[in-house]
Amino acid sequence: MLFIPFPFVVAILLVVLFAGAARRNDESPGNVPFLALILVSALLSLLTGIRWGYGVDGIGYVAPVVAATLPPLAYLGVSSLIGQSGLPPALRVGLHTIPAVCIILLMAIRRSTVDIALVLVFVGYAVAILLFMRRGADALRLAPFDGADSAYRAILFTAFALLFSAAVDTFIFLDLNWANGEYAVTVVTGANLVALGIIAIAVASASRSHAPAELASARLTSDLTDHGIEIEDNGSDSHEGMNDIKDSTTFVSVQTLMESQRAYRDVNLNLNRLARKLGIPTRQVSTAINRATGKNVSQYVNAFRISEACGLLTTTEKPVTEIMFEVGFQTKSNFNREFRRMTEMNPVEWRDRHGRKT
């Protein structure tokens, strides 16, 4: 009877996930690093199955190098939604090949240190991602608002998945050295199952959250302006009153843009684009909204969208999907989630309760 290791099943499911995620992005550029992360994860799961399922020890020379590419891909996927790097794309990608190159060198000169090096790579990138996300969903200034909160949660899952993988690698290293690998196979199988769940959740959001085409000059201008604000704020303790006035003025400008121009209807609206419309740095916009409303920017913008959607559901016979696009949402899942979060019912229930039928 043919034996198929469980990691093979995981690899097949990951390829299916990749196909679905890539197909959803046919009309706009997807988050390439996140998509590549799925494929590399599938390859690593396949290599794991060959090594532990069929006892092919030679895979041990390849799998660590492949594993070393996972954290940089996760980091690049996150940074593409944050947009803080001023480095040329080729140089940025080149820098993140260093972990894989180091693993190759260690495989050649000191193989016993490879596992420790991998743990350091996974932990280091996980910490870097978590530091990126310390501002919450507002850190994702290039992610469209309708999916920013989902992308934020997915990124946190990704960071903790890297920490989980580091813990698994540490356990396997200790098991191989102290117990001759007695528990290694069981741990590897279980870890693959958990990793599949984590990656699936991350892909569901991250594959739909990508930066729309932006002019490089506009992104660079925003980077420089934000940097200037940060320098100014470092010495702003004695100007708290002026900051309050600045925040109030900024919030009024944002509110006016939302109410008079209905800027929230732009399906690709993100923090970077909103800041450029106002001519105000992104950090100043997010800080003003946070202080005035207690919400992050995506929640604030989506509140306008849901408010208009409620009105359209009540006063028109338009289909729910048409209303969803009209008010600025791109996906039904995000629309339904935000609608339920604000109204505690789905759009159909809202329309039924207010005397309208779909």
Rank of each mutant, 00 (worst) to 15 (best):
K332I: 07
L87S: 12
R353P: 06
M133I: 11
G49V: 00
D244K: 07
S41I: 01
N346F: 10
S298L: 02
A21E: 06
I98K: 08
D57N: 09
T358E: 06
R153S: 04
L35F: 05
D175W: 00
E240D: 15
G279K: 12
A161K: 11
F304K: 10
W178L: 07
P319G: 02
P33T: 12
L35P: 03
F329C: 04
F8D: 02
I289P: 08
L118E: 13
P7I: 06
A263V: 13
Q330A: 06
S248L: 11
I280C: 09
A74V: 08
L196T: 04
V32T: 14
L312E: 11
A63W: 08
V194I: 14
A90N: 12
S222I: 13
A117W: 00
V10E: 03
G181T: 01
F251V: 08
V114G: 05
L196V: 03
P88Q: 07
P29W: 09
V32D: 12
I12K: 03
A218Y: 10
S217G: 08
L39M: 10
D244L: 12
K357A: 15
P72N: 12
D352A: 14
Y54C: 03
A151D: 14
G311W: 04
V123A: 10
H210A: 15
V188S: 06
